[in-house]
Every structure is written in C-alpha cells, then in structure tokens.
C-alpha cells in the first residue's frame, strides 16, 4: 500500500518535472531573450506556447503536496520544518510568476509588459532553483525524521542542494527549448525554429556538464543516493544518458521528429532514477516509505482519488494538449488596434 502511494508520488513528481519544467524553462528563455525589441518575437512564441497550459501544468505541484502530506504526513512535516526558507521563497515565487504572466498578457504598454515580464521570468528561474535545492537537501539526508527541524541553512546551502538547484534550472531550460522548437515549427516560423534549436543544443550541453559534475558532488555529499544511482538505478541513469545524447544529435541534425520525446525521456528517467536510488527511504537514512506511511484507510482513499484522476483528468489533459497542438486554441489576444 505504502509502496503504491510512493509510486503515485513519484509519478506526479516526474510529470511535474516534465510539464512544469518545460513551463518554467520557457520563463528562463524569456529572461534571456534580450531587450524589448530584440526579444519580442521569441517572447511571442513563448507566450503562445505556454498560455493555454501553464495553469494546468502547475496543478501537479499541488497534487504532489497533497499526496505527500496525506500519505506521508511525518515526512511533509519534517520537510517543511527544515527546508522552510527555500519553500517560502518558492511559494512567493509561484505568486509572482503566475500573476506576472497573467498580467503581462492583459496589458499592452511596453513598460508594463516589461515589468510583469521581468517578474514572470525571474521567478521562473528562482522557483525551480528552490525546488531543486529542496530535492538536494532531501537526497543528501539533511532532513531529520520525526517532525524535527534540521539545520535551516545548511539543509539547502550545501553541495548537493546547489547541484539540485542548478540542475533543475538547466533541465527546465533544456526541456523548454525542445518544446519551443516544436511550437515555433507549428507557427511555421523558421527563424524561431533555428533560434530555439541553437538554445536547445546549448542547454543540452550545459545540462550534460552539470549532470556529470553532479556525479562527483554526490559521491562526496550524498552517499546513499550515489550508491543507489551507481547500482540499482544505473540502468535508468544509462537510459537518461542515451536519451540525452539522442536528443542532442536529433536537434543538431534538425530532425523533424523525436528530439522532444528524447529530451523528455532524458529528464523523466533521471527523476525516476533519483527515486529508485533513494528507495526505500523517503528521507534518506532517517525515514523509510513504510515508516512514514499514513493508515491504510487514507492511502486507499488517495489511490481511489488517483484512479478517478486517471479516468477523468488524463483524457481532459490529452484533450487540452491535442487542441493546443492542433492550434485550435489560438492566442485569444486582446484588441490589437491599441498602440503598443
């Protein structure tokens, strides 16, 4: 039972890493798109790409929290007590990001757009960094069990947490670039396809370098997870590597299909590898999945809810993505006659 709940939790984390990640990464490319004139076209493509899906993408985060606090309340209490600072920054960042994006779409003046766009883009980098640092803090065994607070600073300012944060930002940028190549292609904008293809290649290289550097960090700072990654999770690590290389080759050769899927595979298998590596601990070396689990009645209820979600939400999600990909959800822009 507890294992099933842990699988649901990790499935949700993986899904969030992909869809939420691609969404955050779009904000990263927005941030580095340059001044308001040079960056206008890339920002339009970004807006167009994430506008219909960003809210749905972030419901995954809420779902992760709900599964965590319902099925593993003790772990949730320990995590929020210890990693108070990065989680608070992430929470405030979520507000800035969502509001900034929604407001930017609703205003027309360049100055307003620039301010809201900055709020959106900066927090798009800040939030995944903080969430990545939280993962690093957990993976390196710095969160004690039993609802006790660990060190409020060292828990997220340490080599593994910094690695987690940087890797999270790299992976979001990486995923987003591949998604944006496809979206620019759908808009038949070849210059933007080339623009994001260059960025996808750069991000792939950067994410690869950080991931390799991460191996050394983990071997010193997060031994349990390192041991897991080099033993039972090794096939997944290799899969991630293969997918990553495939994505790089495909995007560099300007292949029409497959690059985005390979990039998704690289990130998904890495996230799952983390989960397998720290199995059967929820908080490595202090709290196991079985020990943290809520009574069976609760877990049954969550599994039923998850089953209902699979029946109701997955088709809805597929519908949203199919409509979006078929451009049946065009930018419902505001009246365009007003001066920019």
């Amino acid at each position: 039972m507890a294992t099933a709940a842990a699988v649901v939790l990790f499935a949700a984390i993986t899904t969030y890493a992909i869809f939420g990640g691609a969404d955050f990464g779009a904000g990263f490319w927005d941030l580095v798109a340059g001044g308001s004139e040079r960056g206008e076209r890339p920002r339009e493509v970004i807006d167009h790409s994430i506008a219909p899906v960003w809210e749905a993408n972030h419901v995954w985060l809420i779902f992760i929290f709900v599964v965590l606090w319902t099925c593993f309340p003790e772990a949730y209490a320990s995590i929020t007590l210890t990693l108070f600072v990065p989680l608070t920054i992430a929470a405030l960042g979520v507000v800035l990001r969502g509001a900034g994006f929604a407001f930017r779409k609703a205003v027309l003046r360049t100055r307003d757009r620039r301010n809201f766009g900055a709020a959106f883009a900066v927090s798009s980098v800040l939030v995944p960094y903080c969430l990545g640092a939280v993962v690093g803090g957990i993976a390196s065994g710095r969160v004690p069990s039993g609802g006790k607070a660990g060190d409020p600073w060292d828990s997220w300012v340490n080599p593994t947490a910094v690695l987690g944060g940087v890797l999270a930002v790299c992976m979001t940028a990486y995923l987003a670039a591949f998604f944006l190549v496809r979206d620019a292609g759908r808009l038949s904008d070849e210059s933007m396809v080339a623009y994001f293809r260059r960025r996808a290649t750069a991000a792939a290289v950067a994410a690869g370098v950080v991931a390799v550097a991460g191996i050394f960090v983990l071997s010193n700072d997060a031994e349990y997870v390192f041991d897991g990654l080099t033993s039972r999770a090794l096939p997944l690590v290799v899969l991630s590597l293969v997918c990553g290389l495939a994505a790089l080759v495909l995007v560099a050769r300007a292949a029409r299909r497959g690059a985005r899927l390979a990039a998704v595979g690289a990130v998904a298998s890495l996230v799952v590898a983390w989960g397998v590596a720290q199995w059967d601990y929820l908080l490595p070396k202090t709290l196991t999945v079985a020990a943290a689990a809520a009574p069976s009645g609760t877990i049954t209820a969550v599994l039923v809810a998850t089953g209902l979600a699979a029946v109701l939400i997955v088709p809805a999600f597929v519908l949203l993505y199919v409509l979006d990909q078929k451009t049946l959800l065009p930018e419902e822009s505001l009246p365009e006659a007003s001066p920019r």
Binding site: L61, I62, F65, W69, V95
Partner: peptide, 8 residues
Amino acid sequence: TVLSFEFG
C-alpha cells in the same frame, strides 16, 4: 497554491 505550502 501558496496555501498548500503554508499548511506545512
């Protein structure tokens, strides 16, 4: 979303 952070 902030509320779900704040519970913890």
